[in-house]
Amino acid sequence: MEKTKNNRAWFLVLPVVISVSFSAIIPLMTVVNYSVQDIFGPGQRVWVGKEWYVDAVRDADLHAALLRNLLFSFEALLIEIPLGVFLALRMPAKGKWASLALVLIALPLLIPWNVVGTIWQIFGRADIGLGGYFLNSTLGIPYNYTLNARDAWYTILVMDIWHWTPLVALLAYAGLRAIPDAYYWAARIDAASNWAIFRFIQLPKLRGVLLIAVLLRFMDSFMIYTEPFVVTGGGPGNATTFLSIFLSKLAVGQFDLGPAAAFSLIYFLLIQVFSYIFFTTIRNIGRGDTA
């Protein structure tokens, strides 16, 4: 069949290009301009060149925030992915209980980030919070997320797990439902154990969705801001100062626009790398031997 070649449909993306240029590209250009200057006020600025970049890449606090953020993302993934798969395997496949389980599992996902933060901030308090009171008074474990760095870290981590494991569970659940029954019949004929079914049928078939889950969760936890901002404000000390909190302190708190601009561009470059990996991986799913 002869196909007509017409690229004029590309003009249909023009509205998006225009709106994105105003919402993203022009501000981004401004950030680039800011990052090479010291801005005192409107019309008062001095060219500083690479200075803010040198400061940023050598800033020990920034390195600490980056490592902290990577560690946080790693720990969150390490727990959320297996836990999500486990939940998905345990959820009923059919009937009214399946709907109920889905709704219950999805509940935390419906709560806005700042409300999640507020819930956990109160939940963890030793005087009026259920969780904090239980740990301190009932179990006798000293727990105070405003004073103890380790407590603050685990509070944020558990909060993230509570908030986002459902996403992994839902993705894995959808992936499990997409496996044809014939695979299970074959497994039954071979008298395969539950573990063998999981290892050789379910896990390989979940590969695609799990990859998406890992990348989504990594990106989100790498950009985490609202929840630690509400619960701990980055403290105690710097214990929960993740990259975005560090950046907003620099830009909004101290109004150091130049350094903040240089740092946000570095942050932007890091995100670019992860987004590109995300994009390439998703595009290549389903090609070759991927499930």
Partner: peptide, 18 residues
């Protein structure tokens, strides 16, 4: 003050984006 002053353009960054 030019209307683009808020963007704080400089010659090097202008060359970069060009």
């Amino acid at each position: 003050m030019s209307p683009l002053e808020w963007m704080a353009w400089t010659t090097p960054t202008a060359i970069f984006f060009a």
